[in-house]
């Protein structure tokens, strides 16, 4: 369960997020959309413990993550969260398999045989089995994104945060990756995804980020004032 309460964030004098309230149930598939520069990445980063909000709280399973010490927050990112980014994010100096195993290493534990088996099965699941020993440069953009998804899953996180994971991919690959996320969600992993691919909006609960506020997608044409004035904006999937 992710609970976001009265979250605000400014960059210098620019208001990016203001008074955002949001709740995401375990196992949900949540999509956030909105115009470029609207603050979607910022929102995802605050929820994922990557950047500190100016005000408000983020509770993950009732833990206020921004009250945690730096090592504890790092451990939370390591164990509970998986990130998939909108740009190629594999480490070029490491093989695909080593890339997938990287979060294990940051958990202060050498990967064991079980981890290795799991990594291999994940690569199979994302559809790039047999690429274990290759280096990122040898993979296509779609294959790299698949490997990044496998890496996000290696610690069996409860939540995967995906920021425009198909933004730079062709339509066919996009469809395949979306299917992949759906099947991951089908196994119980919560997915919070920023995307412009609104064809997929039907997959789950969809929100739009507009004028620093978050609205349910179908309400997005409404005036933001009307909604926020009414009190808390809370959508439980």
């Amino acid at each position: 369960m992710i609970q976001v309460e009265a979250l605000s964030k400014d960059y210098k004098s620019v208001r990016v997020l203001q008074g955002i309230n949001w709740a995401i149930e375990d196992g949900a598939f949540v999509i956030v959309t909105g115009r470029s520069g609207g603050g979607k990445t910022t929102l995802l980063s605050i929820v994922g413990g990557l950047t500190r909000p100016d005000a408000g709280r983020v509770l993950i399973d009732d833990t206020d993550i921004w009250q945690l010490s730096e090592p504890d927050l790092a451990a939370l990112r390591n164990e509970k969260l998986g990130f998939v980014f909108q740009f190629p994010s594999l480490i070029p100096t490491l093989s695909v398999l080593d890339n997938v195993l990287l979060p294990i290493a940051f958990g202060d534990k050498s990967p064991n045989l079980e981890d290795l088996k799991f990594a291999t099965s994940l690569l199979e699941m994302v559809g790039i089995s047999g690429k274990d020993g290759q280096y990122p440069a040898q993979l296509s953009g779609g294959q790299q994104r698949r490997a990044a998804i496998a890496r996000a899953m290696i610690k069996r996180p409860a939540i995967i945060l995906a920021d425009e994971p198909t933004g730079d991919l062709d339509e066919k690959t996009e469809a395949e990756i979306m299917d992949l996320f759906q099947s991951i969600n089908g196994q119980g992993t919560t997915i919070v995804m920023v995307t412009h691919a609104l064809d997929y909006a039907k997959i789950g609960k969809t929100y739009t980020l507009k004028d620093s506020h978050l609205f349910p997608y179908e309400d997005s044409e409404a005036s933001p004032r009307d909604l926020t004035r009414g009190g808390e904006l809370r959508h439980d999937a």
Partner: peptide, 13 residues
Amino acid sequence: RELGLFRAMGARR
């Protein structure tokens, strides 16, 4: 970026 990604993956400061 790479080092930021490490942090995102759970690497401590």
